[in-house]
Amino acid sequence: MPEQFYQNAYLTQLDTRVLRHNEAGLVLEDTIFYPLGGGQPGDTGTVSDAAGTALEITDTRRDRMSREIVHLSAPDAPRFAPGTPVTLTLDWTRRYRHMRLHTALHLLSCVIRAGVTGGNLTAESARLDFDLGDEWVLDRDQIEQALNRLIVDDYPVSVEMTSGAALAAQLELIKTMSVQPPLDLPEIRLIRIEGTDLQPCGGTHVAHTGEIGRVVVKKIENKGSRNKRVVIALAD
């Protein structure tokens, strides 16, 4: 995976060059901006050139056909010519909250051991939907306490790679019931929380669970006959 956010989620600046820039958006030789996917929002920030022109990036998406990462801005924003050297500056405050909450959701899936039917996050809150029957009673305080214990224990978080064939032989690692990773790929990215969790994921994460900080369970909702939604937020 060549994109820099896969190599190092903590990079906040990157020098690169423009491949093309048109009405569809800005495509660069490389990027630190994470594109919308896996329930995690696309990154925002700025792209600037040596002349001082700064372009505000309002969203980042991956083109479905070409698989290129496209940086979006206002329709009337200036455009860079192909080959222009530019510097990317990530909205790190927003991205880091995404990283903290995304890792917290992985821990939540360890606290509530049930199939995950959906999930999403923003910089303000995050949620998972679980496939739970009526016999399940979720206690808000117990979930919050268990989740914060895992955070305080400060487990290392690391990236591993496996093949689709190998993952097909370990389907218990796939917690999401609604969307499964493409098992025909030669490489699939896994996120390991040491001694706690291992599951496929393409998102950005913190390096240790202690970085998440204290979280609160904002609410628990019934979403249909079996789905229960748990919404969490960072205490800060």
Rank of each mutant, 00 (worst) to 15 (best):
I32W: 06
G203Y: 05
S66V: 06
D184M: 07
S125A: 14
R189S: 04
Q170G: 00
L90Q: 03
F80I: 03
S109V: 04
T117I: 04
A51M: 08
Y10W: 12
A166G: 14
I193C: 07
A235R: 13
G210S: 12
R140F: 05
H208C: 12
M65S: 12
R113K: 15
C201F: 04
D76Y: 04
T60G: 00
L132D: 06
Y34I: 08
R64V: 08
S66K: 02
G119L: 00
E29L: 11
R94P: 03
S73T: 14
S109E: 01
H71K: 05
D153W: 11
D184K: 09
G133E: 06
R189A: 02
T44W: 01
G38T: 01
R79I: 10
G52M: 03
K218C: 12
G118W: 02
P156N: 11
S178D: 14
R113S: 09
L128H: 01
N227K: 13
M99G: 03
V216C: 13
I32G: 01
H205W: 11
I174T: 10
P186C: 03
R95Y: 09
G45Q: 05
L88D: 02
D63G: 01
D131Y: 07
D197W: 05
T162R: 01
L185K: 15
G25P: 02
S158V: 09
I151Y: 07
V216R: 15
D129M: 00
K223S: 13
R100N: 05
G39N: 06
M99H: 10
V206Y: 10
R17D: 13
R149P: 04
K219C: 10
R79Q: 15
V27H: 11
R113I: 10
T16Q: 12
L90F: 04
Y155M: 13
T44S: 06
N22W: 10
P35K: 00
L183G: 09
V86E: 00
Q13R: 15
T122A: 01
N8D: 15
V27W: 08
P200R: 05
K228V: 00
E211K: 15
L190F: 08
L173T: 06
F33T: 09
L36G: 07
A166I: 08
V179Q: 12
P200I: 01
N120T: 08
I143A: 02
R140Y: 03
L72P: 06
E29W: 09
R140L: 11
I232R: 04
P41M: 05
R192P: 05
D141W: 02
T60V: 08
L19P: 07
C110L: 04
D49V: 08
N148I: 05
E194F: 07
L128F: 06
Q145R: 14
V230A: 02
A81V: 10
W136N: 08
L72V: 04
M65P: 00
P35C: 07
W92V: 01
R140M: 10
L105D: 01
R229K: 12
A81W: 11
L11I: 11
L11Y: 11
D139N: 09
A146N: 09
Q13P: 05
S48I: 01
R127C: 03
G195W: 11
R95D: 00
L150R: 15
W136A: 15
E3R: 10
P186I: 02
T44H: 04
R95H: 09
M177A: 15
P82F: 12
L183T: 08
A50D: 14
I69W: 02
D30E: 15
S158D: 12
G202F: 06
L185D: 11
G210C: 13
G37A: 11
I174C: 08
